[in-house]
């Protein structure tokens, strides 16, 4: 098993009662799990995700996650 920290942006965190934005979520997953596996495990629909970073770099849904990674999940953004 691998442990990762998942931090959620914007309104994504509302789904998790007592979410602590400084600490994020401590998640335990199977070795070899991908980013898509983790968000599915957390019950976050992919349509609500803009992009995901792992240890500060943008990663794709299929990227495999290693033990100790800090993952940030961002909502789709608009702006200008």
């Amino acid at each position: 098993m691998a442990r990762v920290i998942v931090k959620l942006s914007g309104t994504l965190r509302k789904k998790f009662e007592h979410y602590d934005s400084a600490k994020g979520l401590d998640v335990e997953i199977q070795d070899g799990a991908s980013i898509a596996d983790i968000v599915a495990h957390l019950g976050i629909p992919e349509s609500k995700i803009g992009f995901v970073s792992a240890n500060g770099c943008i990663v794709k849904a299929g990227s495999v996650v290693e033990d100790g990674t800090v993952i940030k999940v961002f909502q789709p953004i608009f702006g200008g």
Binding site: G10, T11, G79
Partner: peptide
């Protein structure tokens, strides 16, 4: 959700985290 929840709650400053990431 972005325009009805995120922006009213956090303002356009919500962009700091994703652009920084």
């Amino acid at each position: 959700e972005f325009s009805s929840e995120t922006l009213p709650e956090l303002g356009t400053a919500v962009l700091v985290d994703p652009i920084n990431a």
